[in-house]
Design a binder for these strands. Structure first.
Length: 722
RNA sequence: GCCGAAGUGGUGGAAUGGUAGACACGCGCGCCUCAAAAGCGUGUGGGGCAACCCGUGCGGGUUCGAGUCCCGCCUUCGGCACCA
């Protein structure tokens, strides 16, 4: 593996040997000419059919671009040029997704205001992309932190509010302990923060949410009409998680009202052995008996303190406590105990279930642990239905939906599906319950208690309550501040700025306070593809004719990691705009493709539990070529690292080094800049390499050796031509 | 556990059901050179002197013909995971 960065072309013409074609001067000349002539400038209309190629707009990070980023931009550019040459009127725009926490964290780390950093970084990205000859229509450049852009975020917020799709509630939210902020469900992985891997706990705060759950069916249905990778569509389907079932009331003994439960297996209702409420369920207090109160309270407190990670930990014992209350099964009037257990989730369905241990694995575990009965109501087949097994002898729950009902009164000896229908009908006619479709999808939490985002255009008035800022008063401008770091109390830094907070109510003119939450960055990216149609429009978020001309995006390129975040939100926004009659398209992108990752060979600490990368700069006498060869021969080997403990002089300490292929990033010390490669081999060789090394969707292991092929090819082309 | 994608030379990877391994990297040989680098030419799946035989993760099947289609496994990568 070559690591030198000698320059192969010092400018071309001056090179006596003439062995390499003068790529630097050629590339510079044409890039200049293209820019001068504005060949990429795009206008709407004309006879040619339109084609809209979009690569996901990046957050310009302080680390700059590395060759991994080219996996996306270079193929996007190649397609744009191809379609242009094929006679399509091609739109290929670029912009900066510069609001949000990555930008803010970056700024905090460098101790500067994000508003000062963003323009510098955007300029640097633009420079790097230009070196590579990527053909954007820079006249359409947008920046999400520009008031001319984010005022339309506020407009969109108000539109959703008007349509009943934006609401505020006091809600348990995912709270990242490290970063002192809330996270969307999509930002929590394994109970840990997506960015810092810190623990996430539940915390109650007033929050703004978008009612994406109203669009569950539309979001599902639209998937059948778009050419997106199966994996992405599947992930979205599962994330939306539609399930059909029944909701019904179970009376609590002693005139204590009723608990509503949701089930997808109403055919098993005769097998209900107990009822379980989630620890957060509102009626727990009211129904708990005096004898059980202490135990129930203790259990609920423990559950509240537990982080998501502990609560969902694999192989965890299913625990719960008896409330002392009894419920009455509406179909057979059996009396069953009511429990509180944390395996029932507050946020799904009604937060309460009928437990049918003979036919549900979780209920079965719970029943065995607490010695509860497991009455059998489903038999494997008609044969078994004649002599069904007894509950006590069961070794596991029988969960198939293809069985036959038994011990189910008038509904016995029916195939499960038939029984489910008849029982549902019976419940509806008796007024006990209704058929219900439930979604796993939760509403989209857009509040952020952060500085670097779009201010939510709402005013809180003592008299009038929640008042939307009138559209003609937009934008609500994000003020310049001294201190933009998040406070430990969970409130936005904006709350500490009286000039921002104190205002008058747009309705009654009385004193009022501005909302201090800002919007999640994912709001900005949920409609930017529409803004590109008419980026300088000042009277509306987009010019209707231009947007209808370009939309939908014909080819959208970006990473798989956006499967259920950005890509779902963008679809939601598009559908809302469509329903509001503001745009013809009801899907943002006809075709979506996900680029593969680019991996770099990375030195890691062989003895650390997570095989932590070590920056080459910290390794004494690091030599990538020699070291990787050595590793391949003998495996992990000893070396020395420079340690810089805080407040102490730096020192050398021994480490064992091994190498792993990890996603390229500056922080892992395995990244290669396009600048260096373009200087050494030329932008065209680099572009050819990126296109040629592997199919677009495959992972590539970066190796500079492979740059030789495209480079030689271009030299031969040059020889033939000259 | 469930879902998705993928397994082809030393390597990256090509192949509408029709000559498997295009193209490229690497490597071998040759030319050029005092020599090297670069370049050019040529060879390169395995076995065999050869004719030929064997080869696309494994085991079956469909077909005149299978890397490709079907059934059953194995492995790798990615995602989801108490959703009642």
């Amino acid at each position: 593996m070559e690591t030198t960065t000698e320059i192969r072309d010092g400018g071309g013409e001056g090179d006596e040997s003439g062995r390499y074609y003068p790529f630097q001067s050629i590339e510079k000349k044409w890039q200049q000419r293209w820019a001068e002539q504005g060949v990429y400038r795009t206008t709407e209309g004309g006879d040619r059919p339109k084609y809209y190629v979009l690569t996901m707009f990046p957050y310009p990070s302080g680390s700059g671009l590395h060759v991994g980023h080219l996996r996306n931009y270079v193929p996007g550019d190649a397609v744009a040029r191809l379609m242009h040459m094929r006679g399509f009127n091609t739109l290929h725009p670029m912009g900066w997704d510069a609001f949000g926490q990555p930008a803010e964290q970056d700024a905090i780390k460098r101790n500067v205001n994000p508003s000062q950093v963003v323009p510098v970084l955007a300029k640097e990205y633009k420079r790097q992309l230009s070196i590579l000859g990527v053909s954007y229509d820079w006249d359409r450049e947008i920046n999400s932190t520009d008031p001319d852009y984010y005022r339309w975020n506020q407009w969109a917020f108000l539109l959703l509010h008007k349509r009943g799709l934006a609401y505020r509630k006091f809600a348990p939210v995912n709270w990242c302990v490290n970063e002192n902020t809330v996270l969307a469900n999509e930002e929590v992985n394994d109970g840990k923060c997506w960015r810092c891997d810190g623990p996430v706990v539940k915390k109650d705060l007033p929050q703004w949410l978008f009612k994406i759950t109203d669009y569950g069916d539309k979001l599902l249905e639209g998937l059948d009409r778009i050419d997106w990778p199966e994996g992405i569509k599947t992930q979205q389907r599962e994330w939306i998680g539609r399930s059909e079932g029944c909701e019904f009331d179970i009376a609590i003994e002693g005139d204590k009202g009723a608990v509503r439960v949701f089930t997808t297996r109403v055919d098993t209702v005769f097998g209900m052995a107990f009822v379980v409420l989630s620890p957060e369920h509102a009626v727990v207090d009211a129904i708990t008996s005096d004898e059980q109160r202490a135990e129930v309270t203790a259990y609920r407190e423990r559950a509240a303190r537990m982080s998501e990670i502990d609560r969902t930990a694999e192989g965890r014992e299913r625990t719960g406590v008896f409330t002392g209350a009894y419920a009455v099964n509406p179909v057979n009037k059996h009396r069953v105990p009511v429990y509180v257990a944390d395996y029932v989730l507050a946020g799904y369905g009604t937060g309460a279930i009928m437990a049918v241990p003979a036919h549900d694995e979780r209920d079965f575990d719970f029943a065995r642990r607490y010695d509860l009965p497991t009455p059998v109501v489903i038999a494997r087949d008609e044969q078994e239905a004649l002599d069904p097994p007894r509950g006590e002898t069961l070794e596991a729950a029988f969960t198939s939906k293809d069985g036959f009902t038994v011990n189910s009164g008038d509904f016995s000896n029916l195939p499960c599906k038939v029984a489910a229908n008849r029982i549902a009908e019976w419940m509806e006619s008796e007024g006990v319950g209704v058929r219900k479709v439930n979604f796993r999808l939760r509403d989209w939490l857009v509040s952020r208690q952060r500085y670097w985002g779009t201010p939510i255009p709402i005013v809180h008035c003592e008299k009038c309550g929640i008042v939307p800022v009138p559209e003609d008063q937009l934008p609500v401008v994000l003020p310049d501040v001294e201190n933009y770091k998040p406070g430990p109390d969970g409130r936005s830094p904006l709350a500490a700025i009286p000039e921002f907070v104190n205002t008058t109510c747009p309705t009654c003119g009385g004193p009022a306070q501005r909302e201090t939450d800002t919007m999640a960055g994912s709001v900005d990216s949920s409609w930017y593809f529409l803004r590109f149609a008419s980026p300088r429009e000042t009277s509306a978020p987009w010019d209707r004719a231009a947007a209808d001309y370009w939309m939908p995006v014909d080819l959208y390129l970006g990473g798989r990691e956006h499967a259920v975040g950005h890509l779902l939100y963008a679809r939601f926004f598009t559908k809302v705009f469509h329903d509001a009659g503001l745009i013809d398209a009801d899907e943002p992108a006809r075709t979506l493709r996900n680029q593969g990752m680019l991996l770099g060979y990375t030195a890691v600490d062989a003895d650390s539990s997570d095989k932590h990368p070590i920056l080459p700069g910290d390794l004494v006498d690091f030599d990538l070529d020699a070291w990787t060869r050595r590793f391949e021969q003998e495996g992990p080997f000893p070396a020395e690292r420079v340690a810089r403990p805080q407040g102490e002089p730096e020192r050398r300490e021994p480490v064992r080094v091994e190498f792993q292929w990890l996603k390229m990033s500056k922080s892992k010390g395995n990244s290669v800049t396009p600048d260096a490669m373009a200087q050494k081999y030329g932008a065209d060789a680099l572009r050819l390499y990126v296109l040629f090394a592997a199919p677009f969707e495959d992972t590539i292991q970066w190796s500079e050796d492979a740059m030789n092929g495209p480079f030689r090819f271009l030299n031969r082309v040059w020889d033939v031509v000259t």
